[in-house]
Design a protein around this nucleic acid. Structure first.
Lengths: 112, 112
DNA sequence: TCTATATGTAACCTTTTAGTTACTTATGGA
DNA sequence: TCCATAAGTAACTAAAAGGTTACATATAGA
């Protein structure tokens, strides 16, 4: 991921409303703009602008279906940062790595 | 970590100069403001403001020593987000968890 | 075809961010 | 004590962010 994309990603994440919108889209894959706007106090246009920011960061992907725009959460950018940090800060994160190892093993249990 | 602190953290990270400053401080623990400013094209005051943002996000900790202000990288906030993501997005990150597991095992090898 | 709905665009306003220069304060050392 | 150096504060500017209202477009369905 290049530096400009990282700017977009962190900027998108640096807002409580946007994180809440992202969470809503994550839990309601395929929902549309009005659905999201219905959950917030500010205007539909405000929500749309937040969605544009999330989409520029590639955290939300949208697809036109008739007059609806279906919204989907895209985990890839967060995962890339997560993995980069795993590598880059391993020295600093070391103190808790044993715990992380346990969590990972828990989650990969029974999977191939 | 509360939501306001997350805002400060992501906002601090959403800037290439700040990420570069953070990296410099990380690799030069205890360095001072002028040392950092010497590595960038913009003014010392500009650098100081970036450091203030990093410090508000708790990514940099500073300590006065004589007329110097010694700067230290603090990995804790990034680690907290990292661990939160590990839990929260485990379902979405699953596809690459096998690979992550390998990395973690590599890094914890021989450690207790 | 007509209408209600879902989205999109334009223009505007206020606040915050990112940077500057000029000036002030504090301290280490000759 | 005097001076050079490191940091801090104040005031200003330009640009970006975050929100609004008003208007325009597109489509599903009676």
């Amino acid at each position: 991921m290049d530096e400009d994309q990282l700017d977009l990603l962190f900027h998108a994440m640096a807002s409580q409303p946007r994180r809440a919108i992202l969470e809503l889209v994550r839990e309601n894959a395929g929902c549309n703009l009005n659905f999201v706007a219905g959950h917030f106090e500010f205007s539909r246009i405000g929500v749309m602008k937040h969605l544009d920011v999330l989409e520029a960061a590639n955290l939300v992907i949208s697809q036109k279906n008739g007059r609806d725009r279906e919204l989907y959460f895209n985990p890839v950018p967060l995962q890339e940062v997560h993995e980069h940090w795993t590598d880059h800060y391993s020295r600093h994160f070391a103190a808790r790595l044993t715990n992380l190892k346990r969590v990972v093993e828990q989650q990969t249990k029974g999977r191939k």
